[in-house]
Design a protein around this nucleic acid. Structure first.
Lengths: 360, 360
DNA sequence: TCAATCAGATGATGCGCATTATTAGCAACC
DNA sequence: GGTTGCTAATAATGCGCATCATCTGATTGA
């Protein structure tokens, strides 16, 4: 086992060439009129094989190359793991993809927290530089920081749809709209007509998309949209009964478990009297919690797809060719904004509508 | 927003000093006979504050400094989060500690897998270098690789006790011995006398420790140790009844859930007829699974403590002082090998022994 | 008065790599 | 025979930082 690390210079010496030649061979060469004969190339490759040379990522990065390190930054105040039920799956997907890509993952756990959200400023900028590109997680992004990333042409990909910014931000999101539409379809197929939307107004993308999906689907079926502002769970339960809903859709962050409890406390059964569909997975799966019907967000896949996309963007940035001298195909606009299907979850909180006043 | 990154040279220019001076100020200076006046120091610090300068980790690392990056390597074939019930909590703890320390975490997801376990060789060595030190996870470490780490004096810490290697390997483990002893104590306190150990023979540390704990405790109480080799769950259930055990202890990887099912299928209740104590948490918590009694492994804390220890080791390696000119205290032997208490879990699978032939 | 000491800093160097500019050798052409 | 053109490579440079060796000017000691 060698004491000192093996460098390109060592390899060069063994192959009887210059360090530069080794670098060219490793990078598929040909930046400008540089040519390496096939024979020399082979000699270098042999030397690399024999010595077991591997590039020092720090040096690569410093010299303006790629380090095969991709970063993960989050805007949440505490690193995603803490809210592990929600963020864990993203990271699992990211790690799987990283293994496939042969890339290391750098978690920016050091970024300072200000105003309850993590910032990229100051400390952040430089640290980002160790990674070839970065995945961005969490709702509360900071516009100025994003602008800087765009300005400096630093490759990044959002996890979660970003509609706000006219197509400049690459992202991999989930199709909350489509998922919600299908839930309404489902309810209608079960004979429901009075279907309420329970939730908080919000400007976050998932909420906007759920509302849009609800609106669209209700309109399609010629039904009236009815929103119930969630303030107090008990009050909301009363309202649901007052309005004689036979079904409601609700986002997972809006305490569906407690809501169902309240309904049952009022002598109604879920789904016997009221069907409840969840627009996403439960955030904090309770021991012995209900088996919710609704749709699920493909979080692992989102993580993985985001990393793949990021790696493509990084490759695009680097004007380097593969060994056939061709550049990989450029990233298309379609790739830049991916929205993944949210599969339906059968569950046990949906049933046929009780025949009510609106029944035929 | 500056286009080009701010370097020490920029800061130096602003403060009217040389780049070297800036570096000295940042590192608490004084490598050899170098002195910086308080006034100059302040000027440099001001310039840093104004420019918002931050060190480029790649450059720091290349120049032999610290990058404030700590690595996580695993010997498992797939990266830990994938088997997230077991490994997830370690990473949670690690991330929390990283936030506290202001350090980024590098996951070595790129390390190649050979023979079903991940290796550090070739690819690995150089990549490790980006991090100031590294946490090691998983059972199947490779001796040669460890030796190399020791030889090159690369700072690392194992998560999980490492007894095999006479105190040369730093680790943060869990006290399986003590935890197991207490479970036996618990059973004895409940009047149990015929207490079996169900499990597979294994040479992994946790298994060795559980067996040791069982042996010790049984001896202390003057009871006979009885091991049931787990081959087939059904056969094991039969054996438990044959031997008229009133209680068994079992490791979580040995299918406790199925075992209890088998017992109940035979008309025995858990814990009514047979108490079952789990020596650790369930590996794959089942929906609606039993509420196991036993002990839990403080995995998050292990992760966090391991990272703290690693950071101390790294600091120790670097002959650098803090701003008062003192070196932090060296790592003691006690710190080098930490074993954390495994708290008891009350649970619902333990009850008083049914009066049997051994009863008074 | 001249050497010795010391505070306070700076210049130069190298870490390992990517990349640009340059060179050496040789065949072809006028 | 000199110039052009081409292939095949190398020398040199810089990325940003840590660090070693060195330098300057002031103060002290004899």
């Amino acid at each position: 086992m060698p004491r000192r690390r093996i460098t390109q210079t060592d390899v060069a010496a063994m192959a009887g060439v210059s360090q530069a030649t080794v670098s060219f061979v490793l990078n598929g060469s040909t930046p400008a009129g540089v040519r390496i004969s096939e024979e020399t190339r082979q000699r270098v490759l042999d030397a690399i094989r024999i010595t077991g040379y591997t590039a020092n990522p720090a040096a690569q990065r410093l010299a303006g190359g790629l380090a095969q390190i991709l970063g993960v930054f989050t805007y949440e105040a505490t690193f995603p793991r803490a809210s592990r039920d929600f963020y864990g799956p993203f990271l699992t997907g990211i790690e799987h993809a990283a293994e496939r890509l042969g890339v290391d993952i750098l978690l920016f756990t050091s970024a300072p927290v200000a105003d309850g959200r993590r910032r990229l400023t100051r400390e952040g900028w430089q640290r980002l530089g160790v990674a070839d590109g970065c995945l961005l997680l969490g709702q509360h992004e900071h516009r100025g920081e994003l602008q800087h990333l765009l300005d400096t042409n630093y490759p990044f990909v959002f996890i979660g749809k970003r509609g706000s910014d006219g197509g400049r931000l690459p992202y991999v999101g989930a199709d909350y709209v489509g998922g919600t539409v299908r839930q309404i379809d489902r309810l209608v197929a079960h004979g429901h007509r009075r279907i309420g939307y329970v939730g908080l107004r919000g400007t976050d993308q998932p909420t906007l998309d759920r509302v849009e999906g609800y609106r669209t689907a209700m309109k399609t079926h010629g039904l009236t949209t009815r929103f119930v502002e969630l303030e107090d769970v008990a009050a909301t339960a009363d309202e649901i009964l007052d309005q004689r809903f036979t079904a409601v859709v609700v986002a997972p962050e809006n305490h569906p478990e407690e809501l169902a409890d309240e309904l049952e406390r009022r002598g109604r059964s879920v789904p016997g009297d009221v069907s409840v569909l969840l627009l996403g997975q439960p955030h904090h799966p309770r021991r012995g919690g209900r088996d919710w019907s609704g749709f699920s967000v493909p979080r692992e896949e989102m993580g993985a797809r985001a990393l793949y996309l990021l790696s493509r963007l990084v490759a695009d940035d680097e004007p380097r060719r593969d060994r056939d001298g061709r550049r990989p195909a450029a990233v298309t606009d379609a790739e830049l904004h991916q929205v993944l299907v949210c599969p339906d979850v059968a569950g046990a909180t949906v049933a046929a509508a009780a025949p009510g006043p609106d029944a035929p």
